[in-house]
């Protein structure tokens, strides 16, 4: 398969910025899954409500390394609130566009930053809402991080999810795609991976329906 990376993506891949781990960080996170072939870890230092330092490690493909690298550049010296607003679209644009099949890397990078900030806020009693609580809003939020590699869009915005509900930790997700859709296995794995870290998670039941 030919993967077309932009020059900027290759440049960040070859010379990743802010690599490593901060000792004694104010927030840290590790997202992704080695079985899926991509993982990012972040450590942040916060001074006067500003991200004064940020470092990453990455296990993954070239775009996984490049997206994490550029994310650290974007987040450094931003206020915590502004850093939270960095979107995967912004990362994607900064790199001059990622192939559709690689969009999930930019989502992973952004999610890792969000969870490092959550960790910081939790440590300092600043957390207003717990993003790990099992509720409709958080399920939706997490499903928005699941990207269909065929379209490069998330499964909520593209209406791939027809509906979902939860009961005593058991989540069911109904998809508007056929089981033999090209990326159904990847989507299914990604849904599981994103939902299973919610508090009180018991199981997820994914159903397909297609005409």
């Amino acid at each position: 398969m030919v993967i077309e990376y932009t020059e900027k993506t290759i440049e960040h891949f070859q010379n990743p910025r802010n690599v490593g781990e901060i000792e004694d960080p104010d927030g840290k996170s590790m997202e992704g899954n080695p079985a899926c072939g991509d993982m990012v870890s972040l450590t942040i230092k916060v001074e006067k409500d500003k991200i004064s330092d940020i470092k990453f490690k990455s296990y993954g493909c070239a775009s996984n390394i490049a997206t994490a690298s550029i994310l650290t550049e974007l987040a450094k010296n931003k206020s915590v609130d502004d850093a939270k607003k960095i979107s995967w679209m912004q990362i994607n644009n900064e790199l001059g566009g990622l192939p559709k099949i690689k969009i999930h890397c930019s989502v992973l990078a952004v999610d890792t930053l969000k969870s490092a900030i959550t960790d910081y806020e939790r440590r300092n009693g600043l957390l207003k809402e717990d993003p790990d609580e099992l509720n409709e809003k958080n399920i939706r939020q997490r499903l928005k991080s699941v990207i269909d590699p065929q379209t490069g869009a998330d499964i909520i915005s593209k209406n791939i999810v027809s509906n979902f509900n939860h009961n005593n930790g058991e989540i069911s997700v109904n998809l508007k795609i056929c089981k033999d859709y090209e990326s159904s296995e990847v989507i299914e794995d990604e849904i599981r991976e994103h939902l299973e870290t919610l508090n009180d998670f018991e199981s997820v039941n994914i159903k397909y329906s297609c005409k």
């Binding site: 398969m1 899926c36 991509d38 099949i101 590699p149 090209e182 990326s183 296995e185 990847v186």
Partner: peptide, 20 residues
């Protein structure tokens, strides 16, 4: 990462290798 399906090699997994 190098396959269109985003799945690891079916050959290596059939030989008992882990996804990693």
């Amino acid at each position: 990462c190098s396959s269109t399906s985003l799945r690891p090699s079916h050959i290596l997994t059939a030989m008992g290798r882990s996804a990693t």
